[in-house]
Design a protein around this nucleic acid. Structure first.
Lengths: 103, 103
DNA sequence: GAAATAATTAAACAATTATTTAATTGTTTA
DNA sequence: TAAACAATTAAATAATTGTTTAATTATTTC
């Protein structure tokens, strides 16, 4: 839990996660979107991996990183507990948003 | 958004938030649950306040801190966007959890 | 098997964040 | 109005995190 929050606390790392939403990517591909060196990127990816926010897959000389969905549930349930969102009010929240979208 | 994540990244601050779930509290009351000095506590409270996670209310020589619910929605919708939870799958997630609870 | 590529780890340095001690502000009450 | 209390701000120090350069590992290709 601790490592998850620390991992999310950095804006660059959140951006990496956003980039990984649609497809798995190698560090080289990711690097095109940032200004730091590859060791810096590597370090961010390791932090995300230790927090189970991404998974790593070796293929020849490339490594592919992709989003790991499991952790998001953990964070959402933390927020439920935190703000006294019981499940019903979270459901209401979702439904309200749906209503707004349709307008 | 940035300050929100930074604020949540610290375990002590998350604990403070947990303590504030049920009732508003003064720094002195909060201090009973922690080992750090009051300036340290003060600093954490300021960080939480700047992130709009708590509100402050002055009453005589006391100050009461309470949870500010608004921000939680912001984080939840970030997670929705991030993990491609569209609202329906979030609703499903909620409903699955409800089902499990009833068993 | 040498050269090129992809990515990492190690070590040093820079920057940020957290904690403490000391001093200060504002409020109550004797 | 002086003493006590609640909490804060300021300044210094300690601890953690992030970034860089340099060296290393693993894989492919010529």
């Amino acid at each position: 839990m601790e490592s998850l929050w620390k991992a999310m606390a950095d804006g660059n790392r959140r951006e990496i996660l956003m980039l990984l939403r649609k497809k798995k990517m190698t560090p080289s591909e990711l690097a095109e979107h940032f200004h730091f060196t590859s060791p810096a990127l590597s370090s961010h990816l390791r932090i995300l991996k230790n927090a189970d926010l991404v998974t790593e897959e070796k293929l020849g000389k490339n490594r592919y990183y992709s989003l790991d969905e499991r952790k998001s549930l953990e964070v959402i349930s933390f927020f439920e507990k935190m703000w006294g969102y019981n499940l019903n009010s979270l459901k209401e929240f979702v439904e309200n948003k749906e209503r707004k979208k349709k307008q």
